[in-house]
Amino acid sequence: MNRVDLKVVLLGNAAVGKTSLVERFVNERFNESLSYQNTIGAAFAAKQMQVNGKRLIMGIWDTAGSEKYDAMSRIYYRGAKAAIICYDIIKSNTFQRAKFWIRELRTVEEGCKIYICATKNDILEHGAVPSPDINVVETYAAGIQAKFFITSSKTGENVAELFNEIAQDFMSDPNNVQKVEEVIDISNESKGTYCCQ
């Protein structure tokens, strides 16, 4: 049985790059030719991770970004230990939506840690200007005790760091550690990944 210890939900507007983020993290690829992709779907992914000599399996839940499903997002993040709230680094409207989800999460799912993620950092190289300003977001994140990451699924920048941070935070909570089984043999360890299988 595929035991999953940690549920992580991805929230954010459509086309901000949620699916790309999961793809990058789980399969270490970006917008690759479809023929190479052997997954039938990328809505749910489970990844085995290693933190402080302990093994845990992270289940990553992608969500439909369309606003008409906003009402149901509560059902999605029920029981989630972490939420990655994505916004497009140059689109302020997506950040406004991000703030909406943060408010929701704060009221509904208190035990859920929030990670704000500005996506598509690589496009800044081509002269694009972040909106809102990075400082504004940083201040906002600090205000709500959320962590803030600037990532690029294209280059892979900060993606692994983001998920590792989530795993670390999860393990640092003594309530969670008990549930995670100890790694019996580290040498036998392999970075197993499964996705929708």
């Binding site: 049985m1 595929n2 035991r3 999953v4 210890d5 940690l6 549920k7 809505a43 749910f44 489970a46 289940g59 839940w61 008409k68 499903y69 009402a71 149901m72 059902i75 999605y76 029920r78 029981g79 929708c196 299988q197």
Partner: peptide, 26 residues
Amino acid sequence: NASRLMTGEGGYYFTNLCCAVSFIEN
């Protein structure tokens, strides 16, 4: 078993089913 329902693949699909039903209702 809630641990099964909250996290795994089955949980994900089931959650989506609940979402679908909720969407239909509203």
